[in-house]
Design a protein around this nucleic acid. Sequence first.
DNA 1: CCATACCTACCATGTAGTAGGTAGGTATTT
DNA 2: AAATACCTACCTACTACATGGTAGGTATGG
Lengths: 190, 190
Amino acid sequence: MVGMDTKTALLDYAERHARQRGLDGFSYADLARDVGIRKASIHYHFPTKADLALALMQRYRTQFHTRLHDIKIAGGTAAAQLDAYVTLYRAALHGGTQLCLCVAFSAGRESLDAPVLAELATFHTNSLAWLEDVFDKGQQDGSLHVNPNSSSQAAACLAQVEGAQIMARAACDVSLFDLATANLTPSHAH
Amino acid sequence: MVGMDTKTALLDYAERHARQRGLDGFSYADLARDVGIRKASIHYHFPTKADLALALMQRYRTQFHTRLHDIKIAGGTAAAQLDAYVTLYRAALHGGTQLCLCVAFSAGRESLDAPVLAELATFHTNSLAWLEDVFDKGQQDGSLHVNPNSSSQAAACLAQVEGAQIMARAACDVSLFDLATANLTPSHAH
DNA sequence: CCATACCTACCATGTAGTAGGTAGGTATTT
DNA sequence: AAATACCTACCTACTACATGGTAGGTATGG
């Protein structure tokens, strides 16, 4: 974290904690130790924990959807795009040490304020739309087997990667993710 | 809760809290209010919170696997058994107000002691074995389309229902679960 | 009597936050 | 150039609870 501005450092550490333990599982005291400032100073950057959670979710959502956009722009078959998508979720596991933020926050959604819940809903809505688009494209280019209801298939796909993360996280074992998503990425040797 | 013994009442309320908010999201003070005894008295029944978590997981796992056993005993095609399985997960959502305990604990696994983690691992292992068995039977009785690797398909199926729970819980909307699991329960009108 | 299941009183930290202050840097004014 | 004003980003000191627990005591039912 050399030379990094304090606010970004706080967000980085907070994101890691939230993805490992959920929002209720860490405190400002943890962040203070991580960043090397006094706990009370964190309130300068994030007056309340809810502000921090919102900033985390907004940052995560925009970064994630930039990645989705990049996958689209890069072109390739729909199957390749789906593969890249699954790879995003796999990478988010960091070897089984953490969940992606949307899953972590979904599980602890009772502790979230309304604006954070709204961001979370937007994350899911955007992801479903992106996936549905991929399945539609897959039907056109013949690279994916698509059932008659692409929105249901998009939902199933999102459920699968999120669930695969849960399984892998529980066991701290990425190979479980691979096993559970093999049908989505058939080009990989499993 | 009339006439119920205190220990069971504690477990019931604790399970609800844990499934709604995770283990870090509730405290003995919540349980004390729920059951109507002093917080310190809870330690008589569960000396530490880790003891409580272990008891919760053990109870949940044994009950869940009794249900799986019942589905098997009841007979019917493999497709009907898979349908019953998905219905278990759907019912566990309680209208979108909570997750099943294994998902809630998986997300917050960092806060769990080793014996609880072991129970959680057993839960997943047993569930996968049961599902794999169903897929094997489905291939024999022709009621399920099974790909060459039934263990991967079992893992995918488990991931899907767990992920579908996450999605439905985030939005407090069971219809998302239905949308995301439609391919597993084709006999239902979606 | 004894086991069970509760109680009170307390402990040691821990949590999210408030209020006022200060140091250093930068922009503006004299 | 020097003084002043303002901003940023931290600090100390503190608050009000809250957390998971300990220790000793008491009431009740079998």
